[in-house]
Simulated assay, not measured.
Amino acid sequence: MNFASFFHWLGIEALNIPWLESLHHFMLQGGQILWWLAGLVFICWLLIVERYVYILVHFPKERQKWVSDWLARDDHNSWYATSIRDGWLGKAHIQLQKNLNIIKVLVSICPMLGLLGTVTGMISVFDVMATQGSSDPKLMASGISLATLPTLAGMVAALAGMFVHARLSKKCRMLELKLEKSLRSRQ
């Protein structure tokens, strides 16, 4: 099933997008593992988008509420006040770090899945060579180049994911520090 027949099945007619057809051709060349890698990358980027939405939309509202509640308090130095403050800081830490470890794991799986695709591709190349009895270097080179596509895709996905994960982690640490400074006790 190609993309055109899939979109026809969905009821979308005359969808002729060149980059979509190129993507479909690339996915067919890479094999089954490349589809698993695409699914993994999709899930990873969904989690990344969720983190950015939380950091840019939801966390500022929570931060503003905590800071205004803290400033409205008369007592900032008692055990009870510091316990409330520490509770808010702990909740902020948990909320900011949510899904970051999952993103890190998914990013680290990408190159491994790409290598798995390359190994399975190489096995199929050698299997074809063994059954057909051909040792033509041109056929071997084209089969090997197709088998390395999953590794390329896995490495590209991992590099992009590592960069974004590092930026997210740094941003979350900065937001935690700013919140902690805003909730310091007045002497």
Rank of each mutant, 00 (worst) to 15 (best):
S142D: 13
R85P: 00
D75L: 06
V67F: 01
M27G: 02
W66Q: 03
G90Y: 10
L46V: 15
G121H: 02
A92M: 06
T151F: 02
V41Y: 04
I94V: 15
M129F: 03
H8K: 13
I55T: 08
T151M: 01
S5P: 10
Q29R: 15
M155W: 00
V128H: 13
F163T: 12
L113F: 09
R167A: 14
I123E: 02
V128M: 11
A92V: 05
G117Q: 03
I17P: 01
G117N: 02
V107E: 02
H76M: 00
V67Y: 02
V53D: 10
K104G: 15
D74W: 10
D69L: 00
A157M: 04
I144L: 07
K178D: 15
L96Y: 06
S169D: 11
Q64G: 01
W45D: 07
G39P: 06
V128T: 15
P60T: 00
S185I: 08
L146F: 12
I109V: 15
V57T: 09
C110Y: 02
L40G: 03
Q32E: 14
E50G: 13
G121A: 05
L23V: 10
L168H: 07
G11M: 04
A4Y: 07
S124D: 05
G133V: 04
G133L: 00
L179C: 06
H58E: 13
A141E: 03
L106N: 05
A81G: 02
A157I: 00
F59C: 04
L37F: 03
M129V: 04
S68T: 08
H165T: 09
L56Q: 13
G30T: 05
G133K: 07
R73Q: 08
L89H: 08
L46Q: 11
L179Y: 04
L56I: 12
M140A: 06
F6R: 11
A130K: 08
R167F: 12
A4G: 10
V107W: 02
L179E: 01
T148N: 01
A14T: 12
V128Q: 13
S108F: 11
P150T: 00
V49Y: 14
A130Q: 10
T148E: 03
V156A: 04
V119N: 03
G11D: 05
L113T: 15
